[in-house]
Computed example of a mutant assay.
Amino acid sequence: MVVGQSQALSRASKRPERSFFQRARYLAARHTSGVIGAVGLLIVVLVALLAGVLATHSPTETDAVNRLLGVGAEGHLFGTDNLGRDVYSRTVYGTRVSLIVGVGVSLVAVVVGVAVGLIAGYYRRVDSALMRLMDALMAFPGIVLAIGIMAMLGQSLLNVIIALGVVYMPRVARLVRSVVLGLRERQFVEAAQATGLADIHILLRHILPNIWSPVIVQATFIFAEGVLGEAGLSFLGIGPPPTIPSWGNMLGEARQFIREAPLLMVFPGAALTLMVLSLNLVGDGIRDLLDPRLRRRQ
């Protein structure tokens, strides 16, 4: 029994290390949902990039005569809303808004969260104060905190990104801190400290490269939650200005006409569902791709 185990360990040690792309192909064969999510996300990105080509009408042009038209009427693929604006074109352009918000929220949360987490995990003197601040932010429900920040900053797309970035930043900070606490006691960090390297050099060159795997996975989920958060704020009327064709604005306006034109909520709602589902599936796939335990099994 012991001989068999030693032989298996010997074969495993001789197995060549797979490259990143080889692991990606291996996981693509086993993780079908991740591939589906990647395809869905690719479609969303292409729609956003080609919105000017795909749209059949101006997303902001109103037409009081042709308001609340049905699907396909008068050349409007998805009909028109209460102001006569083309629903299809607004849905297409709404993809751009959602991608901008998702990317912006992820960047704000990751950049600020990583900085706070590095400082809190490496410097014990400020650890408690910073974590209590993060706890205070996390004590508020996310949507309530975002509403409060928007009330102070005012309605704009940039302010939505800032508000949601502040909401999701504490989870990144706590994640990074937990990883840094373990890395700080490792021998390579102690060796770097013994050689007299500056703290900033140790943080950027020795600790930061070792925390990106969980941060990247967390960023994909924050991307999806940022898209949902923008839609929620817009639905409540405190997101981007109504003139911006976002899916949340479309859903918020359509709820008043749900009996006369129920399909007004279907198209932006379906687009929002596709994007968030694709992002979550991609996040699961990236997590499996970067998981060292799964890497050892390949």
Rank of each mutant, 00 (worst) to 15 (best):
S6D: 12
A8G: 06
S10M: 10
R11D: 14
R11G: 11
F20E: 02
F21N: 10
A24V: 08
R25S: 15
Y26M: 11
R30I: 03
R30W: 01
T32Q: 13
V39N: 08
L42P: 09
I43L: 15
L46C: 15
L50P: 05
V53H: 10
A55M: 01
P59G: 15
T60L: 08
E61K: 15
A64W: 05
V65G: 12
N66F: 07
R67Q: 09
R67F: 05
L68C: 13
L77S: 12
F78P: 02
F78E: 04
F78L: 05
N82H: 14
G84F: 02
G84T: 08
D86V: 03
S89F: 06
T91M: 05
G94D: 00
S98F: 07
L99H: 00
G102Q: 08
V103Y: 01
G104C: 12
G104T: 09
G104E: 00
V105Y: 04
S106K: 09
S106M: 14
V111F: 06
V111G: 11
V114N: 10
V114D: 08
V116H: 02
G117I: 02
L118T: 05
I119S: 14
I119M: 13
I119A: 15
A120C: 07
A120D: 01
Y122Q: 11
Y123G: 11
R124A: 14
L133D: 02
M134P: 03
P141Q: 11
G142T: 12
I143V: 15
L145D: 01
G148D: 04
M152T: 09
L153F: 04
Q155Y: 02
S156A: 09
L158K: 08
A163H: 00
V166A: 09
V172E: 08
V176C: 08
G182T: 05
E185R: 07
E185V: 08
E185H: 08
R186P: 10
E190K: 14
E190I: 14
E190Q: 14
E190R: 12
A192D: 06
L197E: 02
I200L: 15
H201P: 06
L204C: 09
L204P: 03
L208Q: 03
L208V: 13
I211N: 03
W212Y: 07
P214G: 14
P214N: 12
Q218K: 13
A219T: 04
F221E: 12
I222N: 08
I222A: 10
F223D: 09
G226K: 04
G232E: 00
F235T: 05
G237C: 13
G237K: 11
P242N: 12
T243G: 10
I244R: 09
I244A: 15
S246W: 04
S246M: 05
G248A: 11
L251V: 02
G252L: 05
G252D: 03
A254Y: 01
Q256H: 11
A261W: 01
P262W: 04
M265D: 07
F267P: 03
P268W: 05
A271E: 06
A271F: 05
L272H: 08
M275R: 05
M275A: 14
L277N: 07
S278T: 03
V282D: 02
G285I: 07
G285E: 04
G285W: 01
R287W: 00
P292T: 06
L294Y: 04
